[in-house]
Design a protein around this nucleic acid. Structure first.
Lengths: 125, 125
DNA sequence: CGCAATTTTGACAATCGTTTTCGTTTTCGT
DNA sequence: ACGAAAACGAAAACGATTGTCAAAATTGCG
């Protein structure tokens, strides 16, 4: 277990929402860390492989990561300007996804839901 | 409206599932078309902008496109084995996303929803 | 402790999908 | 047919991610 990996894990844990690898790297660098971009990617990959973090893709193809904070299933409302994320729940969505699955003969149904918008603060600016 | 765009639209219509731009390009080329990769991308972008086709990202960041069957807003139920996709609608989800947005002071709310599962055929195998 | 084997790291180059640039060609209106 | 505007395609540019490889840190063992 490397110190570097811990560094990345911790940086993710301190973030509320999704962070891109480049973003995390710049952040760590600006805090004085001498970590390399390669290592950030490697750490994120390792953490993702071991299921400690979630990965998803933004519409422009960038990979974003987040630490699994809670163990309850929830989704995110993300500000497309400042990146601030709010965790939201939606039982209705869960039920809908499940229903759609069984209705079409699909088993083992999972789903990803991301809601994007402009938060009040950014809308003002 | 260009002939080239029609070519791409048609190529998509003849495909059952999701196709990548590179894939479509190779395909058209092998059929003797002298179309350029740039044009394929431009056509796909235009079609996507006008809402005639759907775009989503694979896990490795590649964009894949699919002709829309209906013109209403909808989501996809995708088989994680064979890639077969079913278009599904969910008014409840739309309303929920909208509600979450306003509830947290977000404006200009959009959302992405993808449902994954194993289709009946693949479950049997 | 000391030293060799092994693992981790990071600067840099390579890759890959996608976008831009920029002449050239085609299309369209008149 | 003529000129403006749009579409085209080849090649260069781009940005995120991955591979390479030598240096540095860690480990195992005597």
């Amino acid at each position: 277990m490397s110190t570097r990996r811990e560094t990345v894990r911790q940086a993710l844990n301190e973030s509320t929402g999704f962070r891109s690898a480049q973003d995390l790297y710049a952040n760590l660098r600006s805090e004085g860390s001498k970590i390399g971009l390669t290592t950030v990617y490697r750490a994120l990959q390792a953490l993702s492989d071991s299921g400690e973090i979630d990965v998803l893709r933004t519409d422009d193809g960038e990979a974003v990561y987040r630490a699994c904070i809670t163990d309850t299933h929830h989704h995110h409302l993300v500000c497309r300007d400042c990146g601030k994320a709010v965790e939201v729940e939606g039982p209705q969505v869960e039920r809908w996804a499940e229903a759609m699955g069984t209705q079409h003969g699909f088993t083992d149904v999972t789903h990803t839901v991301e809601v994007f918008g402009t938060c009040a603060a950014c809308a003002a600016a």
